[in-house]
Design a protein around this nucleic acid. Structure first.
Length: 499
RNA sequence: GCCCCCAUCGUCUAGAGGCCUAGGACGCCACCCUUUCAAGGUGGAGAUCACCGGUUCGAAUCCGGUUGGGGGCACCA
């Protein structure tokens, strides 16, 4: 067994384009990236698309785009947009490496480390069911290991095509996991597993081992769900005469019920987070802390800072529940750290075209402090673009009338505000003027501020998630504010009379 | 069923024998600030460190067991 510690560090991420970039894949990729950067190693992207039926170019696009979006870059990887592969260990798509896998399978076959299996899926299923009924471990019973040549000819004559099974040596496999320490498995408990399907497609456990060797991978950092697969990989590595890399298994990201995070129970696609307006900086910061900490009480880090601080010693062993509240908080922190100009730029794709760039820039500082996700901006600023009629439909009388007040009270507040506004001409119309006038009016009535401003807010914005009242009025313009006030007044009058 | 991994506030975590009557953050509650919503500030509730036993003068920290949780056992990755 060769010593990998002398080799230059090479790590990889190996996403499978059978779905959009998953939050767990993103986190594993991030850890590998940080590990490579921290140690000055090489970071490789390899696309695991052997399963042609489930892999799509759209998913590969999504994965690559979103990895870029997160700020994760790689030193070697597949060519995109008709370009060349980057790096000399390619091709970096497994679908382009099929001859290699076939050659290695033949090698194993010839050496007697693998054999043909003619069992049909139905036969296999029957055996499995029988084993379950007998409360035995579900594993291959080794039937095709004892076949005669006559049997084989018979199967071939029936038109059956054989799969290739790896003959797992009955031995104890030990390895020193980078995160979990010494781990030991008894491979005699394993059944011989398929490495090449009957249709000639090589399977994951097989190709991952071949590619990690051929690409010179020294450290395999992956999710804990692969811990029990590692003894299979090591057995394969030995049979093929490869160098054994170091393995490190990071804890899983969990659903709130502590099961492995899944699409069924949680939102897992990075694209979805992106579309909701999470900042990549926030997501990266959040993901890094799901299973790792710098060992101090600091918690806001950029990608570069993480690269400097990251090390496997501080990676946890226990799984971590994905905490949406915490992500939201972090996102707010990052949004607030943006300048108005930066925020406006990020906000642009989330706001309707009807708002021109200048309007977006004016809106940015108004909503910055209450923005959780960029997509929320659409709701916070909806009052700017909706027609007055549509806005009027959004609120009901109950929202116009504060608790403990009557419709008549609400009408008074609205009227005072409208009359105050009417005194101002367009030139004077400014938030600070309006604000001081309104406050005086509320004072004059001896009203609590909240009771006075609540009908105003509902009338002007018609929104539950409220932008700052006076800023909104200024953005809207005097004419439209007056119109909305009048509409609200009508509503209170008619509904109040009916009540 | 078999194998493996894990176990500090609801959640993310600090903690690698005495600094811990266990610290920070999110969330929650209260107050302050703002005569609006947030943001911000201050304070509070919240963990007998899963349980039992051992080692030690001393254990959240080391060892063993128990319980609980998770993962794996595909002609998916």
């Amino acid at each position: 067994m060769s010593d990998t510690s002398e080799r230059p560090i090479r790590v990889r991420m190996a996403p499978s384009p059978t779905g959009p970039l998953h939050i767990g894949t993103a986190r594993t990729s991030l850890y590998n990236y940080l590990f490579a950067r921290h140690h000055g190693g090489t970071y490789v992207l390899r696309v695991e698309d052997t399963d042609a039926a489930r892999s799509t170019v759209e998913h590969e696009r999504d994965i690559i785009d979103n990895l870029h979006w997160l700020g994760i870059s790689w030193d070697e990887g597949p060519q995109v947009a008709g370009g060349e592969d980057i790096g000399s260990f390619g091709p970096y798509r497994q679908s382009q490496r099929m001859e290699l896998y076939a050659a290695e399978a033949s090698r194993l076959l010839e050496a007697g480390h693998a054999y043909h299996c003619w069992c049909t899926p139905e036969e296999l299923e029957a055996v499995r069911r029988q084993q379950e009924a007998n409360r035995e471990a579900p594993r291959y019973n080794g039937r095709c290991l004892r076949l005669t040549d006559a049997d084989r000819q018979q199967f071939a004559a029936e038109g059956r095509r054989p799969a290739v099974r790896f003959r797992v040596p009955a031995e104890t496999i030990r390895f020193d996991d980078l995160i979990r320490g010494e781990v030991e498995f008894d491979n005699s408990l394993l059944g011989d597993f398929v490495i090449v399907r009957a249709d000639g497609v090589p399977l994951y456990h097989f190709v991952v081992v071949i590619d990690d060797e051929k690409m010179g991978i020294t450290h395999v950092i992956r999710g804990e769900d692969h811990l029990s697969n590692t003894p299979k990989h090591i057995a394969l590595i030995r049979a093929l005469g490869y160098a054994e890399p170091r393995f490190g298994h990071i804890p899983l990201i969990l659903n709130p019920d502590r099961s492995k995070m899944s699409k069924r129970k949680s939102q897992t696609a990075i694209t979805a987070f992106r579309e909701q307006g999470y900042l990549p900086e926030a997501l990266v910061n959040f993901l890094a802390f799901l299973g790792w900490s710098p060992g101090t009480e600091e918690e806001i880090f950029t990608l570069d800072e993480l690269s400097q601080r990251f090390d496997l010693d501080h990676v946890h062993k226990a799984g971590a529940v994905f905490d949406q509240d915490r992500l939201d908080h972090l996102n707010g922190v990052y949004i607030r750290s943006l300048t108005d100009e930066q925020l406006a730029l990020r906000l642009r794709p989330f706001l309707p075209d009807a708002l021109d760039d200048e309007a977006v820039l004016r809106v940015a500082p108004l909503i910055k402090e209450r923005l959780v996700r960029l997509a929320d901006a659409a709701e916070l600023t909806a009052f700017l673009t909706e027609s007055d009629g549509e806005v009027a439909a959004l609120y009901g009388v109950d929202q116009l009338v504060p608790k403990g007040r009557t419709p008549a009270d609400a009408a008074t507040a609205l009227r005072v505000a409208r009359d105050t506004l009417a005194e101002l001409d367009d030139r004077d119309f400014a938030a600070d003027v309006l604000e001081s006038r309104s406050r005086n009016a509320a004072d004059g009535l001896g009203w609590k501020a909240g009771d006075f401003f609540r009908p105003l807010r509902a009338a002007v914005t018609g929104r539950r998630v409220s932008p700052p009242l006076f800023g909104s009025m200024e953005l809207l313009g005097r004419g439209r504010v007056l119109a909305r006030l009048d509409a609200a007044l009508d509503k209170v009058a008619t509904n109040g009379a009916n009540a």
